[in-house]
């Protein structure tokens, strides 16, 4: 992983990585990827990929309303609200 790839990933993940640590970050992620390479060397012919580490299947929920309106409680901890809306920094100018 070079620095530009780390910068791109950091932007996509909205992570702030500063100039001092970026080399160190690149090095450690490269190390993780080396481990993945090692894993990928294992022969998996005829093995279906797992979607989940647990060998279990999903239970489904009956379609009945079970959640009451708790807007006031949720909005009490929100930084800014108005007219029942959550306010966030402007998305489109």
């Amino acid at each position: 992983m070079d620095v530009s790839e780390i910068e791109k990933l950091a932007h996509l993940a909205r992570l702030n990585i500063n100039d001092e640590t970026i080399d160190e970050t690149a090095k450690s992620i490269t190390g993780v990827l080396a481990l993945v390479d090692q894993l990928q060397a294992a022969n998996t012919d005829g093995t279906a990929p797992m979607a989940h580490p647990l060998d279990a299947i999903q239970k489904l929920r009956i379609d009945e309303v079970s959640e009451p309106n708790q807007r006031e409680r949720f909005q009490a901890i929100a930084p800014a609200t108005e007219d029942g809306l959550y306010l966030v920094p402007k998305v489109i100018e």
């Binding site: 309303v65 309106n69 909005q75 029942g84």
Partner: peptide, 26 residues
């Protein structure tokens, strides 16, 4: 459906803002 895909919140159209948004939806 009556409720959301991953929570038991109602999906009735035209409700007051955020009155049908539970902890899972948030």
């Amino acid at each position: 459906t009556k409720t959301k895909i991953f929570s038991g919140s109602s999906i009735t159209f035209g409700a007051e803002p955020n009155t049908q948004a539970c902890a899972i939806d948030l």
